[in-house]
Design a protein around this nucleic acid. Structure first.
Length: 226
DNA sequence: TACCAGGAGAAAA
DNA sequence: TTTTCTCATGGT
């Protein structure tokens, strides 16, 4: 089914204004925190429904074991891999997902080889990999492969609802399409926008971890977003 | 101690 | 087709 793009049509001015306020409040984020595109891809799987601090421990564990490569992950047993990524939670599930992703990458000739494929081909291919959903695929496309794809996450959804730009019932593709229609297809802008939304949520959640569906009120007020 | 977190797939209704 | 359940650690 085609996404319901008519349900989310923010004005470019509203999205740019929000971005500029976040940028003024938090400065340049220079995301994603990783040493290589492959580390970005691994991190994108490990961070599923998990705080980034736990993901950092898991990636450090993979690095320490010399397992931060497609070949090493595919060569390891399920138990070895799961043990290394245990701090990220859901370790059995994520170990399978990492192996699926690495199998896909190995089959395609590595992450670098994907550079020749257009996004309209690459995105469906990533989504066809078991364990790679829309957010994970878009993290990889934007931060590992520099494609102008806007990443939607729970923080983005909450921010949009808080500011009356979305109802909260829109599906992932609707929100992504809305951002991509309203904003210029600028990889640096998309990277920074998503990173700023995450930072914005972290700043608040650090103090008020159980603030329900209105977590952004305090910081929104402080930086003048209402 | 109990609750929650940057998701995704499978099973059930 | 939509909703519910499952996976699991670490911080508060």
């Amino acid at each position: 089914m085609m996404p319901k793009t008519e349900d989310f049509a923010p004005s470019p001015g509203a999205l740019i204004a929000l971005y500029e306020q976040l940028r003024a409040a938090y400065g340049a984020q220079d995301w994603w925190p990783a040493d290589s595109p492959f580390e970005v891809a691994v991190g994108a799987v490990l961070t599923q429904n998990t705080a980034w601090t736990n993901v950092e421990r898991a990636i450090a564990g993979l690095k320490a074991a010399g397992m931060l490569s497609c070949e090493a992950i595919l060569a390891a047993t399920h138990e070895e891999l799961a043990e290394r990524i245990r701090p990220a939670g859901y370790f059995n599930v994520k170990a399978r997902r990492l192996r699926h992703l690495c199998g896909f990458l190995a089959d395609k000739g590595g992450l670098e080889a994907l550079a020749v494929l257009p996004t309209r081909t690459l995105r469906p291919a990533l989504l066809a990999v078991n364990g790679i959903g829309p957010e994970t695929a878009d993290d990889i496309l934007l931060y590992a492969l520099a494609r102008p794809v806007f990443v939607i996450d729970a923080y983005t959804r909450r921010l949009l609802v808080r500011h009356g730009l979305a109802s909260g019932t829109e599906d992932y593709e609707t929100l992504r399409a809305g951002f991509e229609r309203a904003l210029p297809a600028d990889v640096a802008l998309f990277k920074e926008y998503h990173a700023l939304i995450v930072e914005h949520a972290k700043q608040v959640c650090r103090r008020r971890p159980r603030c329900g569906d209105c977590a952004l009120v305090e910081t929104c007020g402080r930086i003048g977003i209402t």
